[in-house]
Design a protein around this nucleic acid. Structure first.
Lengths: 216, 216, 216, 216
DNA sequence: AATGAATGAGTGTTCATTCAT
DNA sequence: AATGAATGAACACTCATTCAT
């Protein structure tokens, strides 16, 4: 719970409008949603875990779904923000001379966020197929921008001759699969294995670079 | 529904013990579980969709969960079977001279299964985090054997000098990420995009082989 | 309860599609709705009084409101039916030579119905202001026909020179007020007073006839 | 709302102890109780409509029922007051020479009150069957006195030979039915019809007088 | 005086499951 | 085997009321 609490502190107190009780409700909801899934979690259970009356939940969130959304939406934005927001020139020209450096930076940066938002991300991925509004919201507010952005970045490094000139979406898919595959294995499938993260990332990036190396 | 029906025919009639009514129940359950998730689906709904009485479901399956299991367990076994069953020597020595040929064969072979079991696989992946028995069953009966087997195979091709001598589990992860990443993108994320499957698989395998190529 | 049961028997068994349990539910609902009002009556209470499980109510009636409607709608129709249905010539020419005879017949006939449907009528009157559908249904299916019919009848006796030629709606209102006023006093306001019904009706009709007597 | 506000002003400011906020609460409660009934109206709804906090209602009225009573009780008294209070000799001997004049005065006088208290009267009639205290209060404080009084008045005009010597309660009932029947039709059933009030009252009184005319 | 957060019992309704037919 | 009526616990949500601020 400590890690989760920390993340709630960070994420929601910035917004500054969560009361002590609300934080407890949100923390309890995250715990339960992640453990048993949104629709198998009862509001009674959340209330008990949070140590509040059931009615209190509904004072702050009109419906159970609104509670879910209030947890998942800001995370979704924060997860993708760094990719969208960063000044384009900075990212491409100044920040990272090579594609490898860019990928490494991205892994390092997102790893922290991921580690502290593990449960919320899990909830998000679990529930997105069942809530069309969530999907639409994701695509509208984040998804499309992120993909546009990532395509620009890949094109940039292709133009610089650092990576192979395959179709951009294919490069995107291969890169995404490799990185996300690492994170999923690391934090969801085998979180308790004995990981040497530094080495593992090195190998992963090395694999990716070789795989995407331009033809001679 | 035709595709789903076909698959049900194939899969369950082998077992030979499914009545006409049971097939309808199973088909309805697959449809609903995939669409709204296991716990958000009511047995009433399944009964209606299947055109049977509510009681009929419980005549064939003691509980709702048993119905879920009866859908998901055999699929899980069939999905993994080809990897486990095949005679070891055959696979390694005779069937596929190269790692590339092996990967290509695997993709081709599993693609058919995947396409016709899409919904069940979706259900399986959605529900596995919430049903410990399912997870245990998977690991015990399938997972561990599959992994042992895949490690042997990778070692074999490493020994033949066809792929780089990274830690076996790392190779496994990278290969898995690349292939599963392709399938997920192809069939779950963007099933309606305009895919040239042959070309896409060629590029994917080419990426994988370059990425895993032994050092010179 | 005996009287109520009787009436339920009569009214609903004709339709023949009420199970024993449904009858109990309906009887309990009538009792409670009449006593505390529709919205102050809980389904739990109805279930307990009926000696069934709460769920059973909802097997037969999709909502609490549907239960209310199923009680009130057929009564409304049966209450008004005799006025609408009767063959027009019969009523006007053959059945009743005088307006007095018509009024007396109406009082006698509707008294029986009223006595055995007292509670349901009470519920109907109590709830009609709060359920627009009920009001519309009443007007559409019964009200308008009844009024058209009653106007014809009054006109008929006016033409025969038996009652004064005031505006028809005024005659209707005065007649209605007098008769309904009697019934309300008799059965709702002072049901326990010491009534000599025959004498009281005689006086009431005598008052009505004098009041509506044509000018000389 | 203007009309309602006016009436509240009139009625409650006499008591002089209603704050601005209380008036808003009372006005909102009247609106809602009349529209949806007492028990279907929530205190939250009243608070919102009144523009005050939920707690504020309970600062002024211990319970929701007390709020109802505070609305309905003074109206009940004011409605009946003129009949009770007026100096007996004045009414009978000086004010109105004839029964007809008395009835006409009563209709004129009470019409104003009725028009501006329509909603409260509606609430009173709707709720009286469900609140025994209300009924008792009505009978004790108003009802019995009013009836005693009205009986005296009728007896007086009977003695003067102006109306028929039927049993007093029967005369009372017939007179009441006729007058109340007019008001109910005029203000509750068909308030939007095209009424010529003066003519209608004339006809109604004419009917009543003929109906109650002494035998020759 | 006024607020509105907090309460927990209560609401109508749905649930998975049982069982007589 | 199949039905669908019956169950009562559980559901998300609302209620009148309290109380610290």
């Amino acid at each position: 719970m400590t890690k989760e609490d920390q993340m709630i502190e960070e994420m929601f107190n910035q917004k500054g409008d969560l009361t002590e009780r609300q934080k407890k409700i949100v923390a309890a909801a995250i715990e339960s949603f992640a453990e048993k899934g949104y629709s198998a979690t009862s509001t009674k259970e959340i209330a008990q875990k949070a140590g509040v009356a059931e009615g209190t939940i509904f004072r702050h969130y009109k419906t159970k779904k609104e509670l879910l959304m209030s947890i998942v939406t800001p995370m979704m934005i924060k997860l993708m923000a760094p990719i969208i927001i960063k000044d384009i020139n900075k990212v491409l020209n100044h920040d990272h001379e090579t594609f490898e450096a860019f990928v490494r930076a991205m892994i390092d940066n997102r790893r922290k966020f991921l580690k502290s938002n593990l449960k919320i991300i899990k909830i998000f991925i679990q529930e997105i197929p069942f809530h069309p509004e969530l999907k639409e919201q994701f695509i509208e507010h984040v998804g499309s921008k992120v993909f546009t952005r990532l395509r620009q970045i890949i094109e940039h490094y292709q133009d610089k001759g650092q990576i192979i000139k395959l179709p951009i979406d294919t490069v995107l898919r291969l890169t995404g699969s490799t990185i996300i595959g690492y994170f999923v294995t690391r934090y969801a499938l085998l979180p308790n294995a004995d990981w040497d993260d530094e080495a593992e990332v090195d190998l992963t990036i090395q694999f990716l670079m070789k795989g995407l190396a331009p033809e001679e």
